[in-house]
Design a protein around this nucleic acid. Sequence first.
DNA 1: TTGGTTGCAAACAATTTGCATCTAA
DNA 2: TTAGATGCAAATTGTTTGCAACCAA
Lengths: 162, 162
Amino acid sequence: MPNRHQQASAAPEQAVEEARETFKSFLAEKGLRVTAQRLAIFDAAFAHGDHFTAEELLEQARAIDRSVSRATIYRTLPILTESQLVREIDVGRDYKFYLATRGKRIEQAQVVDVESDKIYEIDAPFLEWYARSIAEKVGLEAISQRLQVQARPIRTEKTEES
Amino acid sequence: MPNRHQQASAAPEQAVEEARETFKSFLAEKGLRVTAQRLAIFDAAFAHGDHFTAEELLEQARAIDRSVSRATIYRTLPILTESQLVREIDVGRDYKFYLATRGKRIEQAQVVDVESDKIYEIDAPFLEWYARSIAEKVGLEAISQRLQVQARPIRTEKTEES
DNA sequence: TTGGTTGCAAACAATTTGCATCTAA
DNA sequence: TTAGATGCAAATTGTTTGCAACCAA
């Protein structure tokens, strides 16, 4: 029985618990083993609320299980990605970002603030349709799409134009 | 006076000649030198009709001037990109593609055929507007955007679903 | 028992950089 | 003349891989 004394944070925690079970099932289905390292990496990924890099994930996973190595991080990330529990995001930097997919939202666009380097995930419903119609133009069937917008804080004062 | 004996290929050749002059002017304006290597790289880029990689450019530039080194290719590419004569295209591969910008078309979307690895450049006029409206959602001003569609040949027969 | 997993360190691959030598202007 | 440009080779950096020791099932 779920403890009913917990408040606001109860729902998200339960969602993570659910995702954790999904991960274990996924491993089992694929004939992969449920190891302490893989669970530590999962936990680290879901403890993080925002985009993270492989390096950041390593650091956080190690805080949970000191035995986690960089190699295992890189070997586990594709599994998490394939399981749909984590999404891989490539915004043209020289390293990739990852993000735990909480809920079922399918964001399809990223706005990258070039000044703060922050990445915002934006819902873009009809982008999928748009991508499909663009692929059709060259006689292909769209599989996936991504829209990335480089942006910066709005300038109100004039700062350039010498 | 333009020679009127040349036919179909006359226009494109002249356009390249024009672009070549633009490149030299650009170098001069920036206080950069017009070297044999830079011109060989320019020529190699414009001799190529499609997307090319740094490595392919090196090979082709060397066919024009054997002294061109890989380092100079990588040092010249940003200059060509800044001059707008060449566009850099990152479709998430581990190397970048480049493309000579003939004419003034501003393609903004790429369709990547995952089976042939071919990249198609597609005009996407209102994408710019769309990107701007998306950036506004998080209070930012859009600088640029890119839409990439992964696609594959349309399957008419069933090939999967075991 | 045993085949999947792991950590470690070496390997990779695209790109960048330090430096002594050239060369365009 | 001289500051910018070049080739070479070494360095960088995120990621991958070979291998012997481990361990989940």
